[in-house]
Amino acid sequence: MNTVVCIKQVPDTETLIKVQGAGIVTEGIKWVMNPYDEFAVEEALRQKEKMKAGSVAIVSLGPDRGIEAIRTGLAMGADTAVHVNDAAYYDKADPYATAAALAAAIKGLQYDAIFMGKQAIDDDAAQVPAMLAEMLGIPAITMVVKFEVAADKSTATVTREIEGGQAVVEVPLPAVFSAQKGLNEPRYASLPGIMKAKKKPVDVKTAADLGASEGPKTVVKEMTLPPARQAGKVIAGDDAAAKAKELARILHEEVKIV
């Protein structure tokens, strides 16, 4: 089975975000592969291993530093990569423009399925899977927690998370699948994997090389920080029971929730 995995490099979840104009201060940030994309890479690798055939291609839009996340994917076991390395395009890219660049890069590839994280944990938009599918003219199944493909690779039967439960959906391939936590347990890159990754081919393109020129459809005007929360009142009391009694009074009389 041939798969494409779309990944994005994002600030590590430990990052304290500082804003600057319509963006964030990128100095000092530790960049990692988007955690949801790790599930996507893992699933693609598992499908290839199960079928004992095929290849896994990483596709990523990002500036120079994005290569590190791509190498992580290659070190996990992906075979090839396309790096749409275009800082000018990336800086302005909204989900639509991102999907357009990825679609342009994917059009030249062979694939039965496209995997990606359900959202990137930077802009949290969760739009690219559906938009990419629309641009490629194939279905998107989002929030996938279980993935099985028919032996003839004609269809996939997937379980997706829905409100309050799960739905099992059958879809003909190719299709886009967005990975939710729970799909699998991503592997760590092994040391030999990391060494091998250095020699794997990475095709570097600009958005213009790929003919992706439509540009963003939404614009960030400004970034702000949430108002700082002040530490509140520590509830006094001789023992847990007294504190609980006071808390119940507060919830009743001050918060007015009980």
Partner: peptide, 16 residues
């Protein structure tokens, strides 16, 4: 809209 899971807010508008 919150971004970075609420560590910051973005003011966003559509172009069309």
């Amino acid at each position: 809209r919150p971004v970075y899971a609420g560590k910051a807010y973005a003011m966003v508008e559509a172009v069309a």
